[in-house]
Design a binder for these strands. Structure first.
Lengths: 152, 152
DNA sequence: ACCGTCATCTGGAATGAATCAAATCTGGGG
DNA sequence: CCCCAGATTTGATTCATTCCAGATGACGGT
């Protein structure tokens, strides 16, 4: 396992360090983690790790293509380890929960811009905005019982 | 024109105030403006307007459905006045330029998630990431002449 | 196994967008 | 024309992220 991660790092010519292994493991174990949570997980494993190191590592791994950065409007950045496959996300407007969604139709039918204004498009990002199951029921409960939202 | 904007505000039961008219006019005149630019434009017209007021007004107008907020990953929020029609954006990775793109295929064929994980989806956001014409040529020039990027 | 170099990490301070809080002002209904 | 809920101002505050300068440690070469 650890050996596995080590070789993964070497393959993209990045030095193998404790923080990097820990961050990589943390993101693999927790899909869609935000930076703060990663820091917490890494510290739990290694003791002291600077805030800065986590940011550096996340950026390095993202640039190397090992991680993917997702930044839902307004919310802090999150990272996931699923890369290479063309999947998208559902984001809950209420609590920020994120879930994976595989592209319904196999290949980019309507994903080609009608007029690209001369831009060279290299990626199409698709975000489904809505309400997650938990917040939906909470909201419904609120409607009927007049209680305040539990999930804000 | 001004009368027009006044009635627009009244229709959504918002008070007609100078800052609001100015912000509304600014966004209508400049598609995809960021908050800071709006503040500049409004100040140029009214003299003194607090930073805070601009944020409040933008939020009020957005909530009222008069404006739409767009937040490309990492960049400060931007606003546009085209609302109601289902169009999307091309964003330049290099300089952050944004252009409108009308949905290529008339209706959501592949825009229905294969598995929505129980989320109640109310909007699908589509972002085309790429490089704008200016940055493309700048990049090409850089490649051949070894000059530094003009557009970073 | 040891060394030296250079990428990486540490800790603290800085930036910049956005929000909060309390006091003051004003649009527009009565 | 008066009044007050809704707007705006001022000033401070939070939060994510980045910058800086110096210490540390990974790893290719000897």
């Amino acid at each position: 396992m650890t050996t596995d991660l080590r070789s993964v790092l070497r393959e993209v010519s990045l030095r193998v360090t404790r923080p990097r292994l820990a961050v990589l493991a943390a993101v693999h174990a927790h899909p869609h983690v935000d930076t703060d949570t990663v820091t917490g997980l890494v510290r739990a494993e290694l003791g002291t790790v600077s805030h800065q190191a986590v940011y550096d590592v996340l950026r390095a791994l993202t640039n190397a293509g090992l991680l993917r950065r997702i930044q839902p409007a307004g919310a802090p950045a999150r990272y996931e380890s699923r890369v290479g496959d063309n999947h998208h996300h559902v984001v809950c407007r209420s609590c920020g929960a994120i879930a994976d969604v595989d592209c319904a139709v196999g290949h980019v039918p309507c994903l080609t811009a009608s007029d690209d204004h001369g831009f060279v498009v290299d990626e199409v990002e698709l975000v489904y905005w809505g309400t997650c199951p938990d917040c939906s029921t909470a909201r419904t409960a609120e409607m009927t019982t007049k209680h305040r939202r539990k999930c804000s």
